[in-house]
Simulated assay, not measured.
Amino acid sequence: MCLLVEPSLFEKTELGDFQAINDPKTTLSELDKSAQERMYLKLVEEIERITSSCN
């Protein structure tokens, strides 16, 4: 799971095969502060979901 912070060529690299938590066309740096906070929350929730299924 990736969180794309700045615009990049993510989709054109081998990493592009991995799912990003955010849309590669809308990176964290392009969001306002409240949208960034929601993205962090989404990431934490996804990490919790994945780790809870491992227990």
Rank of each mutant, 00 (worst) to 15 (best):
1 M>V: 14
1 M>Q: 09
1 M>Y: 10
2 C>Q: 07
3 L>K: 11
3 L>V: 15
3 L>P: 10
3 L>T: 12
4 L>S: 04
5 V>L: 10
5 V>Y: 07
5 V>F: 04
5 V>C: 08
6 E>G: 02
6 E>P: 00
7 P>Y: 04
7 P>H: 06
8 S>Q: 06
8 S>L: 09
8 S>V: 01
8 S>R: 02
9 L>M: 11
10 F>G: 03
10 F>R: 03
11 E>M: 04
11 E>Y: 00
11 E>K: 08
12 K>T: 12
12 K>C: 01
12 K>D: 11
13 T>G: 05
13 T>N: 04
13 T>E: 06
13 T>V: 01
13 T>R: 08
14 E>H: 05
14 E>K: 06
15 L>W: 15
15 L>R: 08
15 L>K: 07
16 G>A: 03
16 G>T: 03
16 G>I: 09
17 D>G: 03
17 D>C: 06
18 F>P: 00
18 F>T: 11
18 F>Y: 08
19 Q>K: 09
20 A>V: 01
20 A>M: 02
20 A>G: 05
21 I>F: 01
21 I>R: 13
22 N>Q: 09
22 N>D: 11
22 N>G: 06
23 D>C: 09
24 P>K: 00
24 P>Y: 01
24 P>E: 01
24 P>L: 02
24 P>A: 01
25 K>L: 13
25 K>D: 11
26 T>Y: 04
26 T>W: 02
26 T>Q: 07
28 L>Y: 15
28 L>W: 14
28 L>N: 05
29 S>H: 05
29 S>A: 08
29 S>P: 00
29 S>G: 01
30 E>K: 07
31 L>W: 07
32 D>E: 09
34 S>Y: 04
34 S>T: 11
34 S>L: 09
35 A>K: 13
35 A>Y: 00
35 A>P: 01
36 Q>M: 12
36 Q>K: 14
36 Q>L: 00
37 E>M: 09
37 E>T: 10
38 R>S: 08
38 R>Q: 10
38 R>K: 08
38 R>V: 04
39 M>L: 15
39 M>C: 15
41 L>Y: 07
41 L>F: 10
42 K>I: 00
42 K>G: 01
42 K>R: 13
43 L>Y: 14
43 L>G: 13
43 L>T: 15
44 V>H: 04
44 V>C: 06
44 V>P: 00
45 E>G: 13
45 E>P: 09
45 E>F: 03
46 E>I: 00
47 I>V: 15
47 I>M: 11
47 I>Y: 09
47 I>H: 04
48 E>V: 13
48 E>G: 08
49 R>V: 00
49 R>N: 12
50 I>F: 12
50 I>D: 07
51 T>Y: 13
51 T>G: 04
51 T>L: 15
51 T>V: 15
51 T>M: 12
52 S>V: 12
52 S>C: 07
52 S>P: 02
52 S>W: 13
52 S>L: 10
52 S>G: 03
53 S>Q: 14
53 S>C: 12
53 S>N: 15
54 C>F: 11
54 C>S: 03
54 C>Y: 07
54 C>V: 14
